[in-house]
Simulated scan of single mutants.
Amino acid sequence: MHKWACAGYGAGMLWVRRALVERHRFPFAGWLSVEHPERMENRRLELRHTAQAAEVGIFAFDVPLRLGAALRLLESVGFDAIHRRIVELTDRLRAGLASLGITPLTPDDPAIRSGITSFPVADPEDFVAALAERQVIASPRRGAVRVALHACNDEADVDAALEAIRQVARAADWRWPRRPRPPVAGG
């Protein structure tokens, strides 16, 4: 949540149905995950059977302040307006990728689309490193390059990313992996 809420690292929320917390154990534990953390008992692990079991470390007192301020800011802009802006920017990015002959892997439907657009490349790590040299931040993800936009970006950011993608593709005579075509019915 810290990314999209613009609240800094460590800011997030977790909701878990009480029945699930009581039936399952969290896959991690910390000193605040136990029934009586103040006892500093290291010989027994008596985990809490509440959502507090997810509290694995020292509480960061600034996190709720940052998260609250970030959510108030986002709410003042309007969550629908932010979503529309992100869709506008990703539409621009997707159109630019299409002009380069690149088909995104992420959904086309704006109703379920986020600011993330991924596209396949043969070597995502090298491609992302070359983009970084051109001041474009992206991430390698599962055989693809992932570009993440938010409402704080603008058209110039998208155009700069597209120009960098074009340069990297041209410089490396990049070969775009072909997406497998779905099988033809009856064939």
Rank of each mutant, 00 (worst) to 15 (best):
A111Q: 11
F119P: 15
R170M: 02
R170H: 02
H83G: 05
D108P: 10
I112E: 08
D109S: 04
E155G: 15
E155M: 08
V168W: 00
S99M: 05
V121D: 02
G68I: 12
D123G: 09
E133M: 10
D108Q: 03
E75N: 15
A156K: 07
F79C: 05
R113Q: 14
V87H: 02
I116S: 09
R166D: 03
P64C: 00
G115T: 07
L162V: 01
H83F: 07
R170W: 04
A111T: 12
E88S: 12
I165S: 01
G96S: 11
R66N: 04
L65V: 15
I112Y: 07
V77N: 01
C152P: 00
T103S: 14
I165L: 01
G101F: 13
V147I: 15
A69M: 05
D154H: 12
S139P: 01
R141Y: 11
E88Y: 12
S76T: 03
D80H: 14
L67S: 12
A111S: 04
A95P: 07
L105H: 01
F119V: 08
G143S: 04
E88T: 10
A69G: 03
G101S: 02
P107H: 04
V87P: 00
G96K: 11
G101Y: 12
D154V: 04
L105D: 13
A95D: 14
I86T: 04
D80M: 10
P104F: 05
L149K: 10
T117A: 05
D91M: 02
D108G: 14
G96Y: 14
A95S: 14
R142G: 04
D108M: 06
R72K: 12
L71F: 12
R146H: 11
P110I: 15
V158F: 03
A160M: 06
A129Q: 13
A69Q: 11
A164Y: 08
A69Y: 01
V63S: 10
